[in-house]
Amino acid sequence: MSLLDFSDEQLERYSRHLVLKEIGGAGQLALLKSKVLVIGAGGLGSPLLMYLAAAGVGTIGIIDDDRVDISNLQRQIIHTTDRIGAAKVDSAEISLSAINPDVRVVKYSDRLTADNAAQIIATYDLVADGCDNFATRLLVSDTCVALGITLVSAALGPFEAHLATFKPHKGDELPCYRCYMPELPGDDQNRTCADTGIIGAVAGVAGSMQALEVVKEITGAGDSLAGKFLIFDALSMRSRLIKLPKDPACPSCGKSVGHV
């Protein structure tokens, strides 16, 4: 496929990408051919999914087993008042198709489990995790490490966001999520926004930055976040980019682990 294969409508739709030397025709083609799996169609997933669809990511998988609740709408901007009670994957598909009919949406209205994770994730080029619990984050990371798939991971607190890219298959010095958090952090693991609260725009900032890093990974624009860790604090409006080294003793991607 080359630039000549773009329809007139696509040349117009993606014109603001095509003029960027960092994206251009080659980058747009890479986006249109890419397959990205998004874990969670909630606070992070809403802006993430909408920007990925708008950017022309060709296939977007969505995993979420939840339904739209009125209390979601304060921040989950992919969903609407008239879709309260609908499955989030169905509501998200309606929004994505309305934004960009080029996108093929694949819906999984299940929870990700140890039984289905490898089968689902293996069909994608890249995974973007915006799920709401640590156990799923570790499962997603371990599966991506085993399959050699890049993971762009974001997480939210009430006034803070964490963002990192994990691709240990691309370099011996690059970490995975377990290099950062080797095991479940005890009884903190079930804290969600239902009990901690959040300003909706904090989810918007974080999910948008996550979408940006996904687009950069696919197109090769700029510097990868792999091996780094971004911490955003909304109350002080400060962000810090720090180094995240590989843990040589990591149980998932460390030297002592024999991968198939």
Binding site: Q76, D129, G130, D132, G157, C193, A194, T196
Partner: peptide, 13 residues
């Protein structure tokens, strides 16, 4: 030193 609490939320609930 900075002590960083793990956060795992996606604000889905």
């Amino acid at each position: 030193l900075e002590i960083v609490h793990f956060i795992g939320g996606g604000n889905n609930a």
